[in-house]
Simulated assay, not measured.
Amino acid sequence: MQVGNLLTGLPAAKRAEAFTELLARPGVRAERIVSHGQSTPEDAPMVQDSDEWVLLLQGAAGLRIEDSDEVALHPGDALWIARGQRHWVTWTAKDRPSVWLAVHFE
């Protein structure tokens, strides 16, 4: 048995977010995302071909989904982003890494 810890061995992620695939099976993919001060440009929203459930494990962040107000996320907060929905990470903590668990459903 091998035990892993998603909060150890974090990449610096100061220039760009760091994505690490954790699991890939037919119909589902899980990844760890490490952010450190990044945000999504207003004119370049993220739009995905799959549904996504995201959980903030560490740090803090703001997220906005089209036609909704920005929400502040803290450790333990999770939300659903439907495929095709435009969304923006409006801010992430600059003083410490923000660590996300993202699960994509094909």
Rank of each mutant, 00 (worst) to 15 (best):
V71G: 04
R96Y: 00
Q85F: 00
I33D: 03
I33A: 11
A93L: 05
E42D: 15
A82G: 14
P45A: 05
L56A: 07
I33N: 07
D69C: 07
H87K: 09
R29I: 05
H104W: 13
I33G: 05
M1A: 11
E17T: 11
L10R: 07
D77A: 14
A13L: 03
V47L: 02
R83I: 02
K14H: 09
H87W: 07
R32C: 03
F19Y: 08
R83D: 05
S35N: 14
G84M: 11
G62W: 11
L63C: 15
V3P: 00
M46Q: 10
P26S: 03
Q48V: 08
L73C: 13
L7S: 04
A72Q: 12
R96P: 00
D95Q: 10
R25K: 13
P75E: 03
A44K: 14
G4F: 12
G27L: 00
H87D: 05
E21Q: 14
S35R: 14
E66L: 01
V89S: 05
W80A: 07
R64T: 07
W100N: 07
A30L: 00
G62P: 13
M1Q: 09
F19K: 10
D69N: 12
A12F: 08
R86L: 00
G62T: 11
V99Q: 09
H87M: 06
D77G: 06
H36G: 05
K94R: 15
A18K: 13
E31T: 03
Q2W: 06
M1R: 10
R32T: 06
A102K: 07
K14T: 15
A82V: 05
W91F: 14
A60D: 01
R83M: 04
I33S: 10
A30S: 00
A13Y: 01
P41Q: 06
L73D: 06
W53S: 02
A44H: 07
E66Y: 02
R83Y: 01
S68G: 07
L73A: 09
R96A: 14
V103T: 13
G27R: 00
Q38H: 11
Q48A: 11
G84E: 09
D69R: 12
E21K: 11
G37D: 07
R64L: 10
D43E: 10
Q38T: 06
A12I: 11
G27H: 00
L56I: 11
E21A: 08
K94N: 05
W80L: 09
R96G: 01
D51K: 04
P75I: 06
A82K: 15
S39G: 01
A24K: 04
P26M: 00
H104Q: 14
H36M: 04
S50I: 01
G27I: 00
R64K: 15
V3Q: 08
S35Q: 14
A24T: 02
R86E: 10
E70W: 08
M1S: 09
P11W: 04
A24M: 02
K14L: 13
A93W: 04
S35A: 15
K94S: 08
G4Y: 10
